[in-house]
Design a protein around this nucleic acid. Structure first.
Ligand SMILES: [Zn+2]
Ligand SMILES: [Zn+2]
Ligand SMILES: [Zn+2]
Ligand SMILES: [Zn+2]
Lengths: 137, 137
DNA sequence: ACTCGTAATGAAAAAGATTCTCATCTCAAT
DNA sequence: ATTGAGATGAGAATCTTTTTCATTACGAGT
C-alpha cells in the first residue's frame, strides 16, 4: 500500500504524504499542478499547506514516484508514475490531455541522442493541437 | 533587413524592437531568456526596460519571428526562427543545447495526432541526456 | 505505551518570473 | 512641424515556487 511506497522512497510516513499520494492515485485528473493538489485536498477536507504540497511533490519526483511536466502555462504539472512511459498530446483550445507511446519515436530518439554523442537520460515530447471537438477554429 | 521583418509583423519599427531583433540575430547564444536579452542589451549599452523585452518577445512570438521554449528551469527561453524547424537535446550536467531534426519522428508525430483525432499545431520535443563530456557520472 | 531527537509541517516572508498600469515619449502619416 | 495612436519605462501587481523558522509529529529505542 501507499505507506510502503513512501517508506521505500526513504521518506517518513506522514499524513500529508499519505494524503497527497492517495489523491494522485484516486483523482480523475491525472495531470495536476501543485495548486490543483492543494485545492483538491481542501475539497476533501484535508488542510495541507501549499508549501508542503510543493515539498512533497518534489520529493516524490526525486524518488521516482511522480513525474513533473513543463507544459505551457507557466506552472508545472505532476502525475503519478504508473510504470509505463508515455508522452502527451494537449488540446490548445480546451486543455484536454491524452497520452500515447510510440515505439518508433522512442527508438529514433535514442538513436538521435547516440548519433550526437549523448546518452539519453529522459525526454519530454508534447504535441499541441486541436482535438476533434475544436478542430474548426 | 530587420526593419522590414518588424513591419511585416504589423509592428511599428521602434528602437527597442530593432535592438532586440539584432541581438537575437547576432548573439552567440541561440536560446536566451528574457532576462538574458535584457542583460545582453545592457552589456551593449542599450538600456531597454525588462517589461519591454517581455512585451516585444511575446509580440515576436505571435508574429512567428521567434519561438518560445519551456525547458526546465522555471523560465521560458526564446530563439530566433530561422525557417527550418528543429528540436533540442540538452545536457543535464552542463546545459549544452544541440539542435536536431528527424524526419521519422516528425512524421510519426503527425500520424499519432491524427490517429487520436487531433490536428497537430505544434510540438515540443526535448531530449535530456549527458553529452560526451559528461557521460561518466 | 513513553521519551526523545530528528525530520516534517504550516504560515508567512522571500524570491523569481511575468504581466499590468499609467504617465510620458516616439514613430509615421499628414 | 503637427498630431494622434501606439510604444516605452518604472514600478506595482500577480503568479509560481522556495525558504525561513517556530512548532509539531513520526518512529526508534526503552
Ligand atoms: Zn479541445
Ligand atoms: Zn501523462
Ligand atoms: Zn554536458
Ligand atoms: Zn533551437
Amino acid at each position: 500500500m501507499d505507506n510502503q511506497e513512501i517508506r521505500n522512497a526513504g521518506l517518513k510516513v506522514t499524513l500529508p504524504r499519505v494524503k497527497i499520494l492517495e489523491l494522485l492515485e484516486n483523482s480523475t485528473q491525472r495531470h495536476v499542478s501543485a495548486e490543483d493538489v492543494y485545492k483538491l485536498l481542501l475539497d476533501r477536507g484535508e488542510e495541507i499547506g501549499l508549501a508542503t504540497v510543493y515539498r512533497v511533490l518534489t520529493q516524490f519526483e526525486a524518488a521516482g514516484l511522480v513525474t513533473r511536466h513543463n507544459f505551457e502555462g507557466g506552472h508545472a504539472v505532476f502525475e503519478l508514475d504508473r510504470g509505463e512511459h508515455h508522452d502527451h498530446i494537449v488540446c490548445v483550445v480546451c486543455g484536454k490531455v491524452e497520452e500515447f507511446m510510440d515505439a518508433t519515436i522512442e527508438q529514433r530518439q535514442r538513436e538521435v541522442a547516440n548519433e550526437r554523442g549523448f546518452e539519453m537520460a529522459d525526454h519530454s515530447l508534447i504535441i499541441y493541437g486541436r482535438c476533434n471537438e475544436h478542430k474548426d477554429n
